[in-house]
């Protein structure tokens, strides 16, 4: 039993990473209705910017805020330059655009900051949390930040005018335009926010997995999986999905014999596919009713 509790705790700690990433994924999905394959690379690039600022002697929290601002602006610029002109192109062309963005960001980061592993500081320290060996203060802080972020997003979408406008623009663009919402800018805003949330995720993850251009590869995959598991239309679902994936990954590794690190990923993914087959809209997603 103690082993079980410990593994669940450790799972929650890794799950917090996936939950952060899943939030960013859901955010962009709300705005543009696609999964952004370059999301992980954008977060990695933001984290490198923060690292560079800290290297130049900027205090952590100032660097944190600056990075958020830069990422927000960067997300909007990418949308305006790259994806606005493609607005009427087929969906699959958009996906190709994401892959292109992925290749460019990864390659530029590799050339600028090279591929050696870098340490990234944590604002929470890395002592054991409340005397537990399984969760460090950093991981506890990460869970806390994820939950606060979730609350803020909930408040933003639920109680502000602009949040309401964004939801309207995402669900029925034509009608939203008719009531005077600038749909184009709502999409750009969605990109900016997704990019900033990705930056937070990146800065929280970097102390655990270390900073390098390929750090996001596996994490983004888990982030997608969590988001899809929880339901792509629900930020709350995405966070729960993230924790569930983290816990499940750890339990599989512990209790099913013969499953080393190698098979963790396929099994976690198999679970997700199974969940989707039973409940195609995810655990907390809305059912989309289609008209003929």
């Amino acid at each position: 039993m103690e082993l079980f509790v410990n593994q669940v705790l450790a799972g929650i700690a890794t799950g917090a990473i996936y939950a952060c990433m899943a939030l960013a994924v859901v955010m962009i999905y709300q705005a543009i209705d696609h999964l952004n394959f370059a999301q992980g690379e954008m977060a990695m690039f933001s984290t490198f910017i923060a690292w560079q600022l800290i290297q130049w002697g900027v205090p952590y929290w100032i660097a944190f805020v600056l990075t958020l601002a830069i990422s927000f602006a960067g997300g909007i610029i990418i949308e305006r330059l790259l994806f606005k002109p493609l607005a009427h192109a087929p969906i699959l062309t958009h996906v190709a655009g994401f892959i292109a963005l992925f290749a460019i960001i990864n390659s530029v980061a590799g050339l600028t900051w090279d591929f050696t592993i870098k340490q990234f500081p944590s604002p929470f320290g890395s002592r054991p949390f409340l005397g537990s060996q399984l969760i460090s203060t950093h991981q506890a802080g990460m869970i806390g930040v994820t939950l606060v972020l979730l609350l803020m997003l909930y408040g933003f979408f639920r109680f502000t005018r602009i949040g309401l406008a964004m939801r309207a623009a995402a669900s029925l663009p034509e009608s939203a335009r008719l009531v005077g919402i600038n749909v184009g800018w709502m999409i750009a805003l969605g990109w900016g926010m997704a990019s900033a949330i990705g930056a937070i995720a990146g800065m929280l993850i970097a102390p655990v997995v270390f900073l390098e251009p390929n750090m996001m590869g596996g994490i983004l995959l888990y982030g997608f999986a969590s988001a899809v598991l929880g339901g792509l239309s629900s930020p709350f679902g995405a966070v729960i999905g993230g924790f569930l994936v983290g816990i499940f990954e750890n339990l599989v590794g512990t209790y099913i014999p013969g499953v080393g690190n190698e098979l963790k990923l396929p099994i976690a993914l198999a679970l997700i596919v199974t969940v989707l087959v039973v409940k195609p809209n995810g655990l907390f997603g809305r059912t989309v009713v289609q008209r003929v």
Binding site: A103, S107, V108
Partner: peptide, 19 residues
Amino acid sequence: GLSGAVFGALLIVVIFVVP
């Protein structure tokens, strides 16, 4: 050093010119 970036840029050119 930038082969990935060049590949990405060429891909973007292709999808911009002929979506």
